[in-house]
Write a protein that binds this DNA or RNA. Sequence first.
DNA 1: CTGAAAGCGCTTACAG
DNA 2: CTGAAAGCGCTTACAG
Lengths: 345, 345
Amino acid sequence: VSRKRRATMQDIARVAGVSRTTVSFVLNDIPDANIPDVTRQRVLQVARELDYTPNAMALNLARGKAMTVGLIVRQTAEQLSIDAFLGQVILGVMRVIEAQGFHLIIHAVDASASGTETYVELVRTRKVDGLVISSPLANDPEIKLLHDEGTPIVVHGAADIPDVPSVDVDNVQGAYIAVKHLLDLGHRRIGHITNTSLRYTSSRDRLKGYRQALDDAGIAYDNSLVFEGEFTDLSGANAMHRLLDMPNPPTAVFIGSDLVALGAIGVVHERGLRIPDDISVIGFDDLMFSQYLQPPLTTMHLPPYDLGRRCGETVLSIIRGELPTSQRLLLPTEIRVRGSTAPLR
Amino acid sequence: VSRKRRATMQDIARVAGVSRTTVSFVLNDIPDANIPDVTRQRVLQVARELDYTPNAMALNLARGKAMTVGLIVRQTAEQLSIDAFLGQVILGVMRVIEAQGFHLIIHAVDASASGTETYVELVRTRKVDGLVISSPLANDPEIKLLHDEGTPIVVHGAADIPDVPSVDVDNVQGAYIAVKHLLDLGHRRIGHITNTSLRYTSSRDRLKGYRQALDDAGIAYDNSLVFEGEFTDLSGANAMHRLLDMPNPPTAVFIGSDLVALGAIGVVHERGLRIPDDISVIGFDDLMFSQYLQPPLTTMHLPPYDLGRRCGETVLSIIRGELPTSQRLLLPTEIRVRGSTAPLR
DNA sequence: CTGAAAGCGCTTACAG
DNA sequence: CTGAAAGCGCTTACAG
């Protein structure tokens, strides 16, 4: 079962009795090269007979483009396993770039690792023409570095790196809407469990929205009502325990991630409390299963596919040398009011 | 912000005052080339100064290897969005191949599309050295074709293509265990909703396990108790409606996918019935959220990360020219008994 | 209209 | 020990 040697342009040239140049011109449909139709047809015919397919490595080397973009996912194995979004984001990026003849190399790097040598290598070796970096930390030094070197790069999920184009969901606004919803229901003592460490901008922005909403309602920010989640259900469970252990626990809680909410909700049930009767819960992300919880989870819906699509469009436009129209693209989020939130009793 | 031109071996050779050959020998640490240490150090020094990184396109062209493997996902956008496994499988493949210096190109192709021109192109253009194909249909003609042409290829999630190496979960055994569990609880009238169309081998194998378990218990197979799911919660809802509309509905149902089960469970609740009191439900896949349902879903646990890992190891060994030790690798599945199944009343 | 030639950046026998 | 040269498979000015 040895691999059969594939035909090259050289082979076509030989069989068709023309030069490699002519073959290249015909196959690439070069407009200026006025190849007579007889020659053209002959070349095409031979190419078909030899089952010719261009060698991408040679072609890309000659053209100086890898025709590949890298998608860097900054998450640990665990986070990745439960991130229901990833598939959609990947798909969005993929569809857009494949439509332009590019392919997608995906690479995961642990959030903990410095990661310098991993994805920087991808661009230094020119295996990729550009990068989409998902969920980086608040200040990844490599990103700025790569960007300053002229690497086409777009950040998804964090946006405070100066000058680097980014696509993100409007976390501040989303969190604001979520907390506003609770306030409108009459809640005044509202807890918050972040989606992850405050080293992540998503987490910081959602906290900011939470604070703004409270502020606008004239409620003082109480730091003892805020706990950090860590992308996991377990972290949500821990935080909820501490919230419920308080002498004066909140009547509602805004959780920055449906996944984290899952663990938190489990704890509420474990303790024999009822949602939303005893405590209202609103999440963030609108994961697929959120609507199936008992009661269905009120949450903020994100557009993961669109996020991927916009990321893809942005890198491509930078690669093509067009400047992106917007340096920073914020996609809106939408509230999905379901059964887990109710008026304060 | 124009991209700065990166140094080439030529540059190093010029600056260090040696030939490109010598540079290549030093940088690649060729054992036979007995380069004197002074020369070696000088070359390495210059390489460092020029911030040299080899050009992957040139290197790969010269070596005739793309150092890339493709992961083909045969799912529609919708399926992909809710497939919580994908992330883990991708990660498993990635970790293994990156450890060997390879990268992962991921490509989704609609289950409906014939898909000939999409991923076959990936290998014809030599953009990838091998392929992992996930969840193909029962008989994808391209796979056999590629395999016969000598393409290193491993199939994940279907395994009845002659001679083509595959890695899968033991679906027959898993389904058998699941149904056996219901039988042991005293159920005799057991419905089945498949995970997807019977064109998929996973679906067929799970149906087979269901039949075997019934058979071993001396229960005749009743076709009217079996409905096809389609990877979606909605399809599960539809099937459950039909099951419950029967004059003599089942007391338990084995659903070939937790996702499909989600829809089915919703219908049970909608109708005011209780799980497991009125009907026992067992799923398959053990998705992350399954344990959080009310009641927690009894289901069969799969090892997605390991599946990815084994797939990666297998393609790599084929690429390296070692024959895979096992043509067909079946990973075991484990039952997770939780609250959704109970003894027949 | 078409070919010879140089180039993309690397590898690797083959000579000295 | 090290260099000149051919090769990987393509592109693309530059001549005729």
